[in-house]
Amino acid sequence: MRLRNAVLAIAAGATGAALAGAAAGVAHQRRVIAHRDAGERVAFGSLRSPALTVVADDGVPLHVEVDEPAPRVDGATAPAPTVVFVHGYALNLDCWHFQRAAYRGQLRTVLYDQRSHGRSGRSTEEHATIEQLGSDLARVLEEVVPEGPVVLVGHSMGGMSVIALAESHPELFGDRVVGVALISTTAGGLEPHRVLVPMVPRTLGGQVAVRVVAALARGHRVVEGFRRIGRPLALVATDQFAFGSDVPERYVAFVDEMLSRTPFDVLADFFPAFGGLDKFALLDALGTVPTTIACGTKDRITAIGHSRKLHAHIEGSRLEEFEDAGHMVIMERHAAVNELLDDLIEAAVA
Rank of each mutant, 00 (worst) to 15 (best):
V7C: 07
G16L: 15
A24K: 12
H28W: 13
Q29R: 14
V42G: 08
G45N: 12
S46Y: 06
A51D: 15
V55N: 12
A56V: 03
G59K: 13
P61I: 11
H63F: 15
A70Y: 02
A78W: 11
A80Q: 14
V83A: 04
H87G: 05
G88M: 07
L91D: 02
L91I: 01
H97L: 06
Q99E: 13
R100H: 04
A101R: 06
G105Q: 08
Q106H: 11
D113A: 09
A128P: 07
T129W: 06
I130W: 01
D136L: 11
V144L: 08
E147H: 12
F173Q: 06
D175K: 15
I183K: 00
P192K: 05
L196A: 09
M199P: 01
R202F: 08
Q207A: 14
R211G: 04
V212G: 00
L216D: 01
A217G: 15
A217F: 01
R218F: 09
R221L: 14
E224T: 14
E224I: 03
F226H: 10
L235I: 10
F241D: 00
S245P: 00
D246I: 10
V252G: 00
D256T: 13
M258N: 03
D265T: 11
V266Y: 01
D284L: 04
I293E: 05
G296L: 04
T297A: 09
I301K: 00
I314D: 13
E320Q: 11
E323G: 03
G326A: 06
H327P: 09
E332Q: 12
A336F: 02
N338H: 06
